[in-house]
Design a protein around this nucleic acid. Sequence first.
DNA 1: TTGTGTTTTATTGCCTCC
DNA 2: GGAGGCAATAAAACACAA
Length: 481
Amino acid sequence: MEESNELHSEENKNSQDNNKKRKLKTPAQLMALEKFYNEHKYPTEEMKSQLAEQLRLSEKQISGWFCHRRLKDKRLSRDETQGNGRQDRSSGVIQDRASGLGQDSCGSTKHGEHRFIDPREVESRRLSGHDFAAADITRNYRSHYTERVGDMDNTSSESSSSLQDRLLTQNEDPYDVETSRYLTHTKGMENMGYKPSGFLKVKGEAENAAITAVKRQLGRQYLEDGPLLGVEFDLLPPGAFESPIMDSGHEPSTLGNPVLRSPDISGVKGQLSPSTRYEVYNSRLNSQDSYLQQENPSIMHGFDLQEKKSSKQLRQKSTFLNDTNPSPGKNSPLDIYDKPSGGISAHNSNKKGRMRSKGYYGRKVTSEQTEPRLDEYDKFSNTKTVQRNDYLKSRPSSSIEKFDGECKAMKDYHNPLRAKMNSTDELVVTKHARVNLPQRDYAPNSFAQIPPRKHQIKGIAMEMPSSFSEDETAETNSSVD
DNA sequence: TTGTGTTTTATTGCCTCC
DNA sequence: GGAGGCAATAAAACACAA
Protein backbone atom coordinates (compact mmCIF):
# COMPACT_ATOMS: atom_id res chain seq x y z
CA MET A 1 0.00 0.00 0.00
CA GLU A 2 2.46 2.45 1.04
CA GLU A 3 4.53 1.66 -1.87
CA SER A 4 1.83 2.28 -4.23
CA ASN A 5 0.99 5.33 -2.39
CA GLU A 6 4.36 6.59 -2.89
CA LEU A 7 4.19 5.88 -6.47
CA HIS A 8 0.95 7.46 -6.62
CA SER A 9 2.22 10.48 -4.99
CA GLU A 10 4.99 10.55 -7.38
CA GLU A 11 2.60 10.68 -10.10
CA ASN A 12 0.79 13.39 -8.50
CA LYS A 13 3.64 15.40 -7.39
CA ASN A 14 1.96 18.30 -8.81
CA SER A 15 -0.73 18.41 -6.40
CA GLN A 16 0.33 18.48 -2.92
CA ASP A 17 -2.61 16.80 -1.53
CA ASN A 18 -2.89 14.29 -4.14
CA ASN A 19 -0.53 12.12 -2.46
CA LYS A 20 -1.21 9.56 -0.02
CA LYS A 21 -4.36 11.00 1.13
CA ARG A 22 -7.32 9.74 -0.49
CA LYS A 23 -9.40 12.21 -2.17
CA LEU A 24 -13.05 12.29 -2.17
CA LYS A 25 -14.73 12.49 -5.40
CA THR A 26 -16.60 15.55 -6.06
CA PRO A 27 -20.32 15.39 -6.12
CA ALA A 28 -20.26 15.85 -9.76
CA GLN A 29 -17.88 13.07 -10.21
CA LEU A 30 -19.87 10.87 -8.05
CA MET A 31 -22.96 11.72 -9.84
CA ALA A 32 -21.38 10.96 -13.08
CA LEU A 33 -19.97 7.78 -11.83
CA GLU A 34 -23.17 6.71 -10.34
CA LYS A 35 -25.03 7.45 -13.39
CA PHE A 36 -22.62 5.68 -15.46
CA TYR A 37 -22.67 2.86 -13.10
CA ASN A 38 -26.33 2.64 -13.42
CA GLU A 39 -25.92 2.18 -17.03
CA HIS A 40 -22.91 0.10 -17.06
CA LYS A 41 -21.78 -1.71 -14.10
CA TYR A 42 -18.97 -3.09 -16.03
CA PRO A 43 -17.75 -0.37 -18.22
CA THR A 44 -15.36 -1.14 -20.93
CA GLU A 45 -11.97 0.27 -20.95
CA GLU A 46 -12.93 2.77 -23.44
CA MET A 47 -15.70 3.91 -21.35
CA LYS A 48 -13.52 4.08 -18.39
CA SER A 49 -11.04 6.09 -20.21
CA GLN A 50 -13.58 8.50 -21.31
CA LEU A 51 -15.03 8.72 -17.96
CA ALA A 52 -11.71 9.23 -16.46
CA GLU A 53 -10.95 11.89 -18.89
CA GLN A 54 -14.09 13.71 -18.36
CA LEU A 55 -14.05 13.39 -14.70
CA ARG A 56 -10.46 14.09 -14.51
CA LEU A 57 -9.74 10.99 -12.71
CA SER A 58 -7.36 8.30 -13.54
CA GLU A 59 -8.57 5.18 -15.15
CA LYS A 60 -7.35 3.43 -12.21
CA GLN A 61 -9.56 5.43 -10.06
CA ILE A 62 -12.43 4.81 -12.29
CA SER A 63 -11.83 1.14 -12.31
CA GLY A 64 -11.41 1.12 -8.67
CA TRP A 65 -14.49 3.06 -8.13
CA PHE A 66 -16.56 0.76 -10.19
CA CYS A 67 -15.09 -2.16 -8.48
CA HIS A 68 -15.90 -0.81 -5.13
CA ARG A 69 -19.21 0.27 -6.27
CA ARG A 70 -20.06 -3.18 -7.31
CA LEU A 71 -18.88 -4.49 -4.07
CA LYS A 72 -20.97 -2.05 -2.34
CA ASP A 73 -23.93 -3.10 -4.30
CA LYS A 74 -23.27 -6.60 -3.50
CA ARG A 75 -22.91 -5.94 0.07
CA LEU A 76 -25.99 -3.95 0.24
CA SER A 77 -27.99 -6.43 -1.62
CA ARG A 78 -26.73 -9.05 0.65
CA ASP A 79 -27.73 -7.10 3.62
CA GLU A 80 -31.02 -6.41 2.19
CA THR A 81 -31.75 -9.93 1.41
CA GLN A 82 -30.70 -11.06 4.72
CA GLY A 83 -31.94 -8.35 6.84
CA ASN A 84 -34.95 -7.16 5.12
CA GLY A 85 -37.74 -9.15 3.98
CA ARG A 86 -36.92 -8.84 0.52
CA GLN A 87 -37.98 -12.31 0.19
CA ASP A 88 -41.37 -11.64 -0.91
CA ARG A 89 -40.06 -9.75 -3.70
CA SER A 90 -37.94 -12.53 -4.66
CA SER A 91 -40.02 -14.56 -6.85
CA GLY A 92 -38.67 -17.36 -8.78
CA VAL A 93 -37.30 -14.94 -11.16
CA ILE A 94 -35.54 -13.13 -8.62
CA GLN A 95 -34.10 -16.13 -7.22
CA ASP A 96 -32.95 -16.88 -10.53
CA ARG A 97 -31.26 -13.67 -10.76
CA ALA A 98 -29.80 -14.02 -7.48
CA SER A 99 -28.22 -17.14 -8.42
CA GLY A 100 -26.96 -15.52 -11.46
CA LEU A 101 -25.45 -12.92 -9.39
CA GLY A 102 -23.71 -15.43 -7.55
CA GLN A 103 -21.47 -15.41 -10.35
CA ASP A 104 -21.46 -11.91 -10.06
CA SER A 105 -17.95 -12.24 -10.14
CA CYS A 106 -17.51 -9.71 -12.65
CA GLY A 107 -17.19 -10.56 -16.14
CA SER A 108 -14.39 -8.31 -16.61
CA THR A 109 -14.46 -5.91 -19.35
CA LYS A 110 -11.87 -7.92 -20.78
CA HIS A 111 -14.13 -10.54 -21.82
CA GLY A 112 -16.52 -7.97 -21.87
CA GLU A 113 -15.34 -5.74 -24.44
CA HIS A 114 -17.82 -7.37 -26.43
CA ARG A 115 -19.89 -8.03 -23.68
CA PHE A 116 -20.31 -4.68 -22.41
CA ILE A 117 -23.38 -5.61 -20.64
CA ASP A 118 -22.95 -7.16 -17.42
CA PRO A 119 -24.96 -10.07 -16.41
CA ARG A 120 -27.04 -8.01 -14.24
CA GLU A 121 -27.79 -5.61 -16.84
CA VAL A 122 -28.60 -8.35 -19.07
CA GLU A 123 -30.87 -9.73 -16.63
CA SER A 124 -32.63 -6.65 -15.98
CA ARG A 125 -32.93 -5.96 -19.57
CA ARG A 126 -34.17 -9.24 -20.14
CA LEU A 127 -36.68 -8.75 -17.60
CA SER A 128 -37.69 -5.74 -19.30
CA GLY A 129 -38.55 -7.84 -22.14
CA HIS A 130 -35.63 -7.62 -24.33
CA ASP A 131 -34.05 -10.55 -25.72
CA PHE A 132 -30.52 -10.11 -26.11
CA ALA A 133 -30.26 -10.53 -29.68
CA ALA A 134 -27.30 -8.66 -30.78
CA ALA A 135 -29.46 -6.53 -32.85
CA ASP A 136 -31.35 -5.48 -29.88
CA ILE A 137 -28.53 -4.40 -27.89
CA THR A 138 -28.63 -1.03 -29.21
CA ARG A 139 -32.11 -0.76 -28.36
CA ASN A 140 -31.43 -2.01 -25.00
CA TYR A 141 -29.15 0.72 -24.42
CA ARG A 142 -31.50 3.12 -25.61
CA SER A 143 -33.97 1.91 -23.25
CA HIS A 144 -31.65 1.34 -20.55
CA TYR A 145 -34.29 2.92 -18.71
CA THR A 146 -35.90 -0.31 -18.85
CA GLU A 147 -33.11 -1.74 -17.08
CA ARG A 148 -34.02 0.03 -14.17
CA VAL A 149 -37.25 -1.51 -14.32
CA GLY A 150 -35.58 -4.69 -14.38
CA ASP A 151 -33.68 -3.70 -11.43
CA MET A 152 -36.65 -3.00 -9.56
CA ASP A 153 -38.07 -6.21 -10.34
CA ASN A 154 -35.11 -7.94 -9.82
CA THR A 155 -34.88 -7.23 -6.50
CA SER A 156 -32.82 -9.54 -4.80
CA SER A 157 -29.35 -9.65 -5.64
CA GLU A 158 -29.29 -6.56 -7.53
CA SER A 159 -30.90 -4.72 -4.95
CA SER A 160 -28.03 -2.90 -3.84
CA SER A 161 -26.95 -1.94 -7.11
CA SER A 162 -30.36 -1.05 -7.71
CA LEU A 163 -30.21 0.94 -4.71
CA GLN A 164 -27.89 3.19 -6.19
CA ASP A 165 -29.30 2.62 -9.44
CA ARG A 166 -32.45 3.73 -8.20
CA LEU A 167 -30.80 6.39 -6.51
CA LEU A 168 -29.81 7.83 -9.69
CA THR A 169 -31.78 6.15 -12.17
CA GLN A 170 -34.97 5.10 -11.12
CA ASN A 171 -35.53 8.17 -9.89
CA GLU A 172 -35.07 8.84 -13.17
CA ASP A 173 -35.32 12.28 -13.00
CA PRO A 174 -35.61 13.63 -16.25
CA TYR A 175 -32.20 14.45 -16.74
CA ASP A 176 -31.26 11.24 -15.43
CA VAL A 177 -32.87 9.76 -18.26
CA GLU A 178 -30.94 11.85 -20.46
CA THR A 179 -27.69 11.32 -18.99
CA SER A 180 -28.25 7.78 -18.79
CA ARG A 181 -29.24 7.88 -22.26
CA TYR A 182 -26.17 9.40 -23.14
CA LEU A 183 -24.45 6.84 -21.29
CA THR A 184 -26.21 4.23 -23.01
CA HIS A 185 -26.02 5.42 -26.41
CA THR A 186 -22.77 6.48 -25.88
CA LYS A 187 -20.20 4.87 -27.50
CA GLY A 188 -21.64 1.89 -26.30
CA MET A 189 -23.03 -0.22 -28.82
CA GLU A 190 -22.72 1.67 -31.90
CA ASN A 191 -19.21 2.63 -31.65
CA MET A 192 -17.91 -0.18 -29.84
CA GLY A 193 -19.90 -2.71 -31.56
CA TYR A 194 -20.64 -4.54 -28.50
CA LYS A 195 -22.23 -7.76 -28.84
CA PRO A 196 -23.46 -10.08 -26.37
CA SER A 197 -20.72 -12.28 -25.48
CA GLY A 198 -20.99 -15.93 -25.22
CA PHE A 199 -21.63 -15.44 -21.69
CA LEU A 200 -24.54 -13.34 -22.35
CA LYS A 201 -25.90 -15.69 -24.75
CA VAL A 202 -25.59 -18.53 -22.48
CA LYS A 203 -26.82 -16.68 -19.68
CA GLY A 204 -29.61 -15.40 -21.65
CA GLU A 205 -30.71 -18.78 -22.44
CA ALA A 206 -30.39 -19.90 -19.00
CA GLU A 207 -32.36 -17.06 -17.84
CA ASN A 208 -35.06 -17.44 -20.23
CA ALA A 209 -36.84 -19.23 -17.59
CA ALA A 210 -36.70 -16.19 -15.51
CA ILE A 211 -37.96 -14.16 -18.31
CA THR A 212 -40.71 -16.51 -18.85
CA ALA A 213 -41.63 -16.28 -15.30
CA VAL A 214 -41.75 -12.59 -15.53
CA LYS A 215 -43.82 -12.75 -18.54
CA ARG A 216 -46.21 -14.91 -16.83
CA GLN A 217 -46.45 -12.59 -14.04
CA LEU A 218 -46.81 -9.65 -16.17
CA GLY A 219 -48.88 -11.28 -18.70
CA ARG A 220 -49.43 -9.34 -21.80
CA GLN A 221 -47.92 -6.37 -20.38
CA TYR A 222 -44.71 -7.85 -21.05
CA LEU A 223 -43.65 -6.17 -24.16
CA GLU A 224 -40.92 -7.53 -26.13
CA ASP A 225 -39.56 -4.29 -26.96
CA GLY A 226 -41.74 -2.03 -25.27
CA PRO A 227 -41.32 -0.07 -22.34
CA LEU A 228 -41.08 -1.92 -19.45
CA LEU A 229 -42.77 -4.41 -17.66
CA GLY A 230 -43.50 -1.97 -15.15
CA VAL A 231 -46.48 -1.06 -17.00
CA GLU A 232 -48.35 -3.57 -15.20
CA PHE A 233 -47.40 -2.53 -11.83
CA ASP A 234 -49.85 -1.04 -9.57
CA LEU A 235 -49.92 2.57 -9.21
CA LEU A 236 -48.87 4.04 -6.10
CA PRO A 237 -51.66 4.41 -3.79
CA PRO A 238 -52.44 7.97 -3.32
CA GLY A 239 -50.56 9.32 -0.51
CA ALA A 240 -48.35 6.42 -0.55
CA PHE A 241 -45.57 8.67 0.14
CA GLU A 242 -47.50 11.00 2.10
CA SER A 243 -46.63 13.59 -0.21
CA PRO A 244 -48.89 15.22 -2.55
CA ILE A 245 -48.59 13.00 -5.39
CA MET A 246 -50.47 14.60 -8.01
CA ASP A 247 -49.42 17.99 -8.25
CA SER A 248 -51.60 19.23 -10.87
CA GLY A 249 -49.67 22.31 -11.10
CA HIS A 250 -46.53 20.67 -12.03
CA GLU A 251 -47.98 17.71 -13.48
CA PRO A 252 -46.63 17.18 -16.79
CA SER A 253 -48.87 16.93 -19.64
CA THR A 254 -48.10 13.34 -19.89
CA LEU A 255 -49.95 12.64 -16.85
CA GLY A 256 -52.69 10.83 -18.36
CA ASN A 257 -50.45 8.61 -20.13
CA PRO A 258 -50.99 5.09 -19.25
CA VAL A 259 -47.44 4.55 -19.36
CA LEU A 260 -47.37 6.34 -16.26
CA ARG A 261 -47.67 3.23 -14.54
CA SER A 262 -44.21 2.93 -15.25
CA PRO A 263 -41.97 0.65 -13.53
CA ASP A 264 -40.58 3.52 -11.85
CA ILE A 265 -43.62 4.02 -10.06
CA SER A 266 -43.87 0.54 -9.16
CA GLY A 267 -40.41 0.69 -8.15
CA VAL A 268 -41.06 3.56 -6.02
CA LYS A 269 -43.85 1.89 -4.57
CA GLY A 270 -41.96 -1.18 -3.94
CA GLN A 271 -39.13 0.53 -2.50
CA LEU A 272 -38.96 4.01 -2.19
CA SER A 273 -35.55 4.39 -1.92
CA PRO A 274 -32.82 5.92 -3.55
CA SER A 275 -34.80 6.84 -6.39
CA THR A 276 -37.01 8.62 -4.15
CA ARG A 277 -34.23 10.60 -3.06
CA TYR A 278 -33.74 11.82 -6.41
CA GLU A 279 -37.26 12.35 -6.89
CA VAL A 280 -37.45 14.40 -3.92
CA TYR A 281 -34.53 16.17 -4.98
CA ASN A 282 -35.80 16.84 -8.32
CA SER A 283 -39.15 17.72 -7.24
CA ARG A 284 -37.83 20.12 -4.86
CA LEU A 285 -35.75 21.71 -7.32
CA ASN A 286 -38.52 21.88 -9.63
CA SER A 287 -40.96 23.12 -7.26
CA GLN A 288 -38.82 25.64 -5.77
CA ASP A 289 -37.57 26.84 -8.93
CA SER A 290 -40.69 26.44 -10.71
CA TYR A 291 -40.96 30.00 -11.27
CA LEU A 292 -37.90 29.81 -13.24
CA GLN A 293 -38.84 27.18 -15.54
CA GLN A 294 -40.94 27.39 -18.42
CA GLU A 295 -38.89 28.73 -21.01
CA ASN A 296 -35.66 27.18 -21.15
CA PRO A 297 -35.91 24.34 -23.44
CA SER A 298 -32.50 23.27 -22.89
CA ILE A 299 -31.93 20.46 -20.70
CA MET A 300 -29.61 20.38 -17.91
CA HIS A 301 -27.24 17.78 -17.54
CA GLY A 302 -27.81 15.93 -14.44
CA PHE A 303 -24.37 16.19 -13.22
CA ASP A 304 -24.17 19.76 -13.61
CA LEU A 305 -27.32 20.09 -11.94
CA GLN A 306 -26.16 18.01 -9.27
CA GLU A 307 -23.36 20.19 -8.56
CA LYS A 308 -25.34 23.17 -8.37
CA LYS A 309 -27.90 21.50 -6.49
CA SER A 310 -25.59 20.33 -4.01
CA SER A 311 -24.54 23.73 -3.35
CA LYS A 312 -27.99 24.77 -3.03
CA GLN A 313 -28.92 21.84 -1.09
CA LEU A 314 -26.56 22.74 1.43
CA ARG A 315 -28.17 25.93 1.86
CA GLN A 316 -31.49 24.56 1.84
CA LYS A 317 -30.59 21.92 4.05
CA SER A 318 -29.99 24.25 6.71
CA THR A 319 -33.26 25.73 5.99
CA PHE A 320 -34.98 22.57 5.67
CA LEU A 321 -33.70 21.05 8.75
CA ASN A 322 -33.30 23.90 10.96
CA ASP A 323 -34.91 26.71 9.33
CA THR A 324 -32.12 28.70 10.51
CA ASN A 325 -28.66 28.52 9.65
CA PRO A 326 -26.61 28.56 12.71
CA SER A 327 -23.65 29.68 10.92
CA PRO A 328 -24.66 31.62 8.00
CA GLY A 329 -21.38 32.60 6.87
CA LYS A 330 -20.08 29.22 7.19
CA ASN A 331 -22.76 27.55 5.38
CA SER A 332 -23.28 30.04 2.88
CA PRO A 333 -24.42 28.15 -0.03
CA LEU A 334 -22.60 30.25 -2.31
CA ASP A 335 -19.46 29.17 -0.85
CA ILE A 336 -19.95 25.82 -2.04
CA TYR A 337 -19.81 26.23 -5.65
CA ASP A 338 -18.77 29.61 -6.15
CA LYS A 339 -15.48 29.09 -4.72
CA PRO A 340 -12.89 30.00 -7.12
CA SER A 341 -11.15 26.84 -6.52
CA GLY A 342 -13.97 25.21 -8.16
CA GLY A 343 -14.14 22.81 -5.40
CA ILE A 344 -17.32 22.03 -3.84
CA SER A 345 -17.21 22.43 -0.27
CA ALA A 346 -20.70 21.87 0.18
CA HIS A 347 -19.89 19.84 2.90
CA ASN A 348 -19.13 22.31 5.37
CA SER A 349 -22.29 23.86 4.96
CA ASN A 350 -24.39 21.11 5.78
CA LYS A 351 -22.74 18.79 7.91
CA LYS A 352 -25.41 19.00 10.38
CA GLY A 353 -28.21 18.53 8.11
CA ARG A 354 -26.70 15.84 6.15
CA MET A 355 -27.69 12.41 6.79
CA ARG A 356 -25.21 10.48 8.32
CA SER A 357 -24.58 7.52 6.39
CA LYS A 358 -25.43 8.28 3.07
CA GLY A 359 -22.51 10.20 2.66
CA TYR A 360 -22.35 10.07 -0.93
CA TYR A 361 -22.45 13.58 -1.80
CA GLY A 362 -22.49 14.94 1.51
CA ARG A 363 -18.92 14.80 2.10
CA LYS A 364 -16.76 17.64 1.80
CA VAL A 365 -15.08 17.88 -1.40
CA THR A 366 -11.62 18.92 -1.65
CA SER A 367 -11.15 22.04 -3.46
CA GLU A 368 -8.34 20.66 -5.39
CA GLN A 369 -10.58 18.55 -7.26
CA THR A 370 -11.89 20.43 -10.05
CA GLU A 371 -15.28 19.72 -11.12
CA PRO A 372 -15.32 18.11 -14.38
CA ARG A 373 -17.29 19.77 -16.96
CA LEU A 374 -20.32 17.81 -16.87
CA ASP A 375 -21.40 18.84 -20.15
CA GLU A 376 -18.51 17.01 -21.44
CA TYR A 377 -20.29 13.94 -20.65
CA ASP A 378 -22.53 14.71 -23.35
CA LYS A 379 -20.05 13.44 -25.65
CA PHE A 380 -21.58 10.23 -24.92
CA SER A 381 -24.95 11.38 -25.52
CA ASN A 382 -27.02 11.61 -28.51
CA THR A 383 -28.48 14.47 -30.26
CA LYS A 384 -30.62 15.45 -27.57
CA THR A 385 -27.75 15.65 -25.41
CA VAL A 386 -26.04 17.73 -27.85
CA GLN A 387 -28.67 20.19 -27.46
CA ARG A 388 -28.06 20.24 -23.89
CA ASN A 389 -24.53 20.77 -24.48
CA ASP A 390 -25.20 23.77 -26.39
CA TYR A 391 -27.22 25.01 -23.72
CA LEU A 392 -24.66 24.42 -21.19
CA LYS A 393 -22.00 25.95 -23.11
CA SER A 394 -23.93 28.93 -23.91
CA ARG A 395 -25.29 29.53 -20.58
CA PRO A 396 -23.75 32.03 -18.35
CA SER A 397 -21.22 31.00 -15.96
CA SER A 398 -22.90 32.61 -13.16
CA SER A 399 -23.78 29.96 -10.79
CA ILE A 400 -27.06 31.44 -10.07
CA GLU A 401 -28.00 31.79 -13.56
CA LYS A 402 -26.83 28.42 -14.24
CA PHE A 403 -28.85 27.10 -11.59
CA ASP A 404 -31.87 28.76 -12.80
CA GLY A 405 -31.36 27.45 -16.15
CA GLU A 406 -30.92 24.08 -14.81
CA CYS A 407 -33.95 24.19 -12.85
CA LYS A 408 -35.79 25.26 -15.77
CA ALA A 409 -34.34 22.59 -17.72
CA MET A 410 -35.43 20.14 -15.27
CA LYS A 411 -38.88 21.26 -15.44
CA ASP A 412 -38.95 21.70 -19.03
CA TYR A 413 -37.59 18.41 -19.26
CA HIS A 414 -40.96 17.09 -18.97
CA ASN A 415 -42.24 18.76 -21.93
CA PRO A 416 -39.71 20.04 -24.24
CA LEU A 417 -37.72 17.14 -23.63
CA ARG A 418 -40.22 14.95 -25.00
CA ALA A 419 -40.15 16.86 -28.09
CA LYS A 420 -36.54 16.42 -28.29
CA MET A 421 -36.63 12.90 -27.46
CA ASN A 422 -38.11 12.17 -30.71
CA SER A 423 -35.93 9.43 -31.82
CA THR A 424 -37.21 6.75 -29.63
CA ASP A 425 -40.66 6.24 -28.59
CA GLU A 426 -39.43 4.29 -25.81
CA LEU A 427 -37.71 7.13 -24.45
CA VAL A 428 -40.67 9.20 -24.75
CA VAL A 429 -42.62 6.71 -23.00
CA THR A 430 -40.12 6.48 -20.41
CA LYS A 431 -40.13 10.06 -19.85
CA HIS A 432 -43.75 10.18 -19.59
CA ALA A 433 -43.66 7.57 -17.13
CA ARG A 434 -41.25 9.44 -15.15
CA VAL A 435 -43.17 12.44 -15.33
CA ASN A 436 -45.74 10.78 -13.42
CA LEU A 437 -43.52 9.72 -10.80
CA PRO A 438 -44.10 11.03 -7.46
CA GLN A 439 -41.13 13.10 -7.87
CA ARG A 440 -42.92 16.17 -8.25
CA ASP A 441 -45.26 15.24 -5.71
CA TYR A 442 -42.67 15.59 -3.26
CA ALA A 443 -41.87 18.82 -4.43
CA PRO A 444 -42.95 21.90 -2.82
CA ASN A 445 -45.14 21.08 -0.09
CA SER A 446 -44.32 17.68 0.70
CA PHE A 447 -40.94 18.77 1.08
CA ALA A 448 -41.81 21.13 3.71
CA GLN A 449 -43.97 18.61 5.27
CA ILE A 450 -41.37 16.08 5.56
CA PRO A 451 -39.95 16.23 8.94
CA PRO A 452 -36.35 16.74 8.91
CA ARG A 453 -34.60 13.58 9.44
CA LYS A 454 -31.72 14.08 11.49
CA HIS A 455 -30.86 10.60 12.04
CA GLN A 456 -30.80 8.43 9.17
CA ILE A 457 -30.86 4.86 9.66
CA LYS A 458 -27.95 3.28 8.21
CA GLY A 459 -29.63 0.43 6.68
CA ILE A 460 -32.14 2.59 5.25
CA ALA A 461 -29.76 4.60 3.49
CA MET A 462 -30.64 3.06 0.33
CA GLU A 463 -34.22 2.88 0.96
CA MET A 464 -34.85 6.28 1.93
CA PRO A 465 -34.55 9.28 -0.02
CA SER A 466 -33.18 10.74 2.92
CA SER A 467 -29.65 11.21 2.54
CA PHE A 468 -29.26 11.83 -0.96
CA SER A 469 -32.15 13.72 -2.02
CA GLU A 470 -32.94 15.47 1.02
CA ASP A 471 -29.63 16.36 2.14
CA GLU A 472 -27.66 16.50 -0.79
CA THR A 473 -29.88 17.45 -3.43
CA ALA A 474 -33.18 18.58 -2.58
CA GLU A 475 -32.23 21.18 -0.30
CA THR A 476 -30.16 22.64 -2.79
CA ASN A 477 -32.54 24.91 -4.23
CA SER A 478 -33.66 26.77 -1.52
CA SER A 479 -34.08 30.25 -1.41
CA VAL A 480 -30.56 30.62 -1.26
CA ASP A 481 -30.36 32.98 -3.87
C1' DT B 1 -13.54 18.85 21.70
C1' DT B 2 -13.18 14.12 21.63
C1' DG B 3 -14.57 9.48 20.72
C1' DT B 4 -17.10 6.33 18.04
C1' DG B 5 -19.23 4.61 14.03
C1' DT B 6 -20.00 4.77 9.10
C1' DT B 7 -18.78 5.52 4.43
C1' DT B 8 -15.59 6.14 0.86
C1' DT B 9 -11.15 5.63 -1.26
C1' DA B 10 -6.94 3.20 -2.17
C1' DT B 11 -4.05 -0.79 -2.19
C1' DT B 12 -2.87 -5.59 -2.37
C1' DG B 13 -3.44 -10.42 -3.34
C1' DC B 14 -5.71 -13.85 -5.67
C1' DC B 15 -8.67 -15.63 -9.30
C1' DT B 16 -10.48 -16.02 -13.95
C1' DC B 17 -10.35 -15.44 -18.78
C1' DC B 18 -8.18 -14.62 -23.20
C1' DG C 1 1.40 -13.30 -18.97
C1' DG C 2 -1.73 -9.48 -19.14
C1' DA C 3 -5.94 -7.45 -17.90
C1' DG C 4 -9.94 -7.06 -15.30
C1' DG C 5 -12.49 -8.17 -11.31
C1' DC C 6 -13.47 -9.50 -6.42
C1' DA C 7 -12.42 -9.71 -1.60
C1' DA C 8 -9.95 -8.14 2.24
C1' DT C 9 -7.73 -4.58 4.54
C1' DA C 10 -6.14 -0.01 5.91
C1' DA C 11 -6.80 4.66 6.14
C1' DA C 12 -9.06 9.04 5.46
C1' DA C 13 -13.16 11.86 5.75
C1' DC C 14 -17.28 12.73 8.05
C1' DA C 15 -21.33 12.78 11.11
C1' DC C 16 -23.05 12.44 15.42
C1' DA C 17 -23.27 11.89 20.39
C1' DA C 18 -21.31 12.64 24.83
